[in-house]
């Protein structure tokens, strides 16, 4: 039985989890500078203790709406290898331990998020937790395509 810790946050009321080691910190969304000529889900870029993080609206990235910055809105600062980004989340909830064996394979669509982006689904006390495969989300070629189109249009 191997347990792994996940950070739980919400998007549109649905709960998502990412491994703790991928999340550096949770911050308030302040001082975001918009960057033109980028994909719509790139909300801008921010400085956090001397390091720059592009700010990504996960809802727009997944095509499940758009984030409006409210009191509860937070940024999850994420680092995967050389990719450092800040992800807009509706609220940060908890850190929980999940038994690897209890993770079920991803259903076709979970909460509107493409199965490709999902590592699996875990049952927790009062419902389901969708575990994201951030590596895939952040490296997906979609992003490249979006960028290319924009460049070509100019």
């Amino acid at each position: 039985m191997s347990e792994k810790k996940y950070i739980v946050f919400t998007l549109n009321g649905e709960r998502y989890g990412v491994p703790v080691e991928q999340v550096l910190s949770i911050e308030k969304p302040e001082g975001v500078t918009p960057v033109p000529n980028t994909a719509p889900f790139v909300k801008g870029i921010m400085n956090l203790r001397g390091i720059l993080y592009p700010v990504i609206d996960m809802k727009q990235r997944f095509g499940i709406g758009e984030s409006a910055v409210q009191k509860e809105t937070r940024l999850a600062i994420v680092q995967i290898d050389d990719i450092k980004v800040a992800i807009l989340i509706d609220s940060a909830e908890d850190v929980i331990s999940i038994d690897e064996e209890s993770i079920e394979p991803a259903p076709e669509v979970a909460g509107g998020v493409k199965a490709d982006y999902i590592h699996g689904v875990a049952k927790i006390d009062d419902g389901l937790l969708v575990l994201l495969n951030l590596d895939r989300v952040l490296r997906d070629k979609d992003v490249e395509i979006v960028k290319k189109i924009e460049v070509n249009e100019r």
Binding site: P36, I45, L52, I83, V143, K147
Partner: peptide
């Protein structure tokens, strides 16, 4: 701008 954003037209970089 970092690896994630890469080259953005019109922007050569950022400063703090």
């Amino acid at each position: 701008l970092g690896t994630y954003l890469g080259d953005v037209p019109g922007i050569s970089g950022v400063t703090i």
